[in-house]
Design a protein around this nucleic acid. Sequence first.
DNA 1: TGTACATCAGTGAACGCGCGTTCACTGATGTAC
DNA 2: TGTACATCAGTGAACGCGCGTTCACTGATGTAC
Lengths: 192, 192
Amino acid sequence: MPWPKEHKAQTRTRIVHEAAAALRERGLADVGVAEIMQRAGLTHGGFYGHFRSKDELIADAVAHAARDSDASLAALRGGVPPRDALDEATAYLSAEHLAHPERGCPIAANGAELARGTSEMRASIGAEIRRRFARLLELCPVRSALARRKRETAGALACMVGGMVLARALPDAEGRELLGEVRAFLKDALTP
Amino acid sequence: MPWPKEHKAQTRTRIVHEAAAALRERGLADVGVAEIMQRAGLTHGGFYGHFRSKDELIADAVAHAARDSDASLAALRGGVPPRDALDEATAYLSAEHLAHPERGCPIAANGAELARGTSEMRASIGAEIRRRFARLLELCPVRSALARRKRETAGALACMVGGMVLARALPDAEGRELLGEVRAFLKDALTP
DNA sequence: TGTACATCAGTGAACGCGCGTTCACTGATGTAC
DNA sequence: TGTACATCAGTGAACGCGCGTTCACTGATGTAC
């Protein structure tokens, strides 16, 4: 094996990482293969040694973005795990997340585009939604009935994604204000 | 004036109408000028007699989609005006809206893409968000404090948009189930 | 009333451009002797 | 230990294609006489 064992896998990860940031920042259609490769310090010709198509990369990048987004939200909470769903939602609905789609939630950044994409993209974003749902469900008070916990989880998730989409479409100050309102709403709704 | 007075304006409206449907169904990048003109029964060459650019059409189409979406939601309620915010949200979070982005809310269909678009697109989607917010605010019980009404309006709007984005990214049955959960959540949250 | 005309909405060929993708190649590397 | 070799990650020119946009034109229309 004429190259270090992990070399190719590392390069691939670097490409996926750059793609995950660029796609969330500028959308699936406006970011080209050449640009992603350049960001990874490579030329566009090598792309197809790693991926069968741009669509395949996109599906991979969504999964990468999901993990990456979790890490960013954890950092926002100072590395402390969320105590409850409201805690998680508060970090999600922050001004920092609003200002940094490139390291934020891929559902808010590319959800609608991915929903119209290939079956691989749909599978990828679908898996991410279920993962977030399951995580948030675990954070709901266990003493409540399961039906209520599912309701609150679905509502919190919808508020998070929708709040971010809305805030990003508004001018900065107006968007931050809206996030504050949604946080306050969720606080009321999730407090028994 | 060698052509009927309203002829050109009517043609323009037809183009905007077709664009509003196509863009919500398939996204801003995947629908071309030629396709839109063909749907309107015209050839692509005539496009620039009506619009300065595709971007200008998109901004116009968003405003058109907004009115059009209102009409669809009203039809879902059988033409009866919503009694309260929950009533409005229930129609919005319906299986029919889920299945028909082409005549539904442009924020849910294209929000994130528009947020990354030209200043005209941002202005257009921003205006639509404020309009929806104002309408929903009026439907909140007037007896509550304004702060609470704003909170509930922002929360309901976020749930509506986010719920639809999430549901559309999931397989059909799963999406409908999620919409049901979000509706139930909002019912609890908006009932005093 | 009928005809010649001016207007301008719409046509369709053509444009440059950037995209995703392919491919013959280069050259850095670990291995064999 | 040093050298020739095989491997294969990465290069960069080239490809066809479809896009947004332009433009010389066509032909349906209302108006003037």
